[in-house]
Design a protein around this nucleic acid. Structure first.
Lengths: 160, 160
DNA sequence: CATCTGATGCGACTGAGTCGCATTAAGTCA
DNA sequence: TGACTTAATGCGACTCAGTCGCATCAGATG
């Protein structure tokens, strides 16, 4: 489950400071790990990585920090179609909307982007009057590779 | 959390039979409850309703049946932006794609539909080569009403 | 540097969902 | 219709993600 890119590195720590958020050592560390990760991390993985740097950091701190970053719209929460259990994954929010495709067969996660998605977002606001804070599009199915190879059962969902 | 409509009633029991699925009393009952509900049910609510008819039905049967219906693409699973905990909600899959908007302030769930969403789905298939089994779009924010009334904190996610 | 207040660590707890296994009951066929 | 086969159910123990209350700690501020 590797992220497509970690190119731009918006300095989240600075943005936290700008918000007047108390900058604890733990928060700095967690934010750095999230930013530097090339994967979509879930809470447990984040905790595991954090413990390598400070073995005393606690699960609750990780959850509280993720909550904070979510509320500040600095990160987005993903389900990735619950391909592996009920956990959530996190990624730094970028300016341009993208979404995720999950292959039920091989488990691959692909990030994708198209102007139609941006258009859709604008349209939704206009049509419904919602002020959109979060928009999450997830697609589950069979990637090109897997579709080419066979016609067995998808792993979790789909035609039986 | 009331569903917009329960107008068309695709007879899921018949579709199960058509698939050669063993039609147990429990499955029939659960499918009926899901179909007849005007709400998005979560597993616990479904169990509660089912127990009114057959007090011996077990949690595990509910989860197994939901899994079955998901695999058969007869129902869709929703998060509804985790407005109330981590549970999932379910609805009968209809032919036309719609999606859900959740207001972080008042908790209202709105179903919405626009041709752009259908277009987006086709585009994704074409551009990525994915055979799409499930597509889930969820929007979180502030509904028109709540936005008009105040400018306090959203309930769970968003600007602090 | 002293103070104030919000954040952390901790461990117990909750709630959703899963699993293995003994028992039950659909579907089938004579 | 009744016997048979096999899948589904009920059950309870279990797992795993996430939460909570509270005592302690440490940023920020003057």
């Amino acid at each position: 489950m590797t992220k497509a890119s970690a190119l731009h590195r918006p300095h989240l720590v600075k943005r936290l400071a700008a918000e007047g958020i108390r900058l604890t050592a733990q928060r700095k560390m967690l934010v750095e790990i999230i930013q530097d990760s090339s994967d979509h991390l879930d809470a447990a993985s984040l905790l595991r990585l954090a413990k390598k740097r400070d073995s005393h950091i606690h699960r609750a701190t990780v959850y509280r920090t993720l909550d904070l970053l979510k509320r500040l719209s600095l990160i987005d929460e993903l389900d990735l179609m619950h391909l592996e259990g009920e956990k959530h994954f996190y990624e730094v929010r970028t300016k341009s909307e993208h979404f995720h495709l999950a292959c039920f067969r091989c488990g691959k996660i692909v990030e994708h982007k198209t102007p139609t998605f941006e258009l859709l977002k604008k349209e939704i606001s206009k049509q419904t009057g919602f002020r959109i804070n979060v928009i999450r599009l997830e697609v589950g199915g069979e990637c090109r590779n897997c579709g080419a190879q066979s016609s067995n059962l998808p792993r979790k969902v789909g035609v039986p």
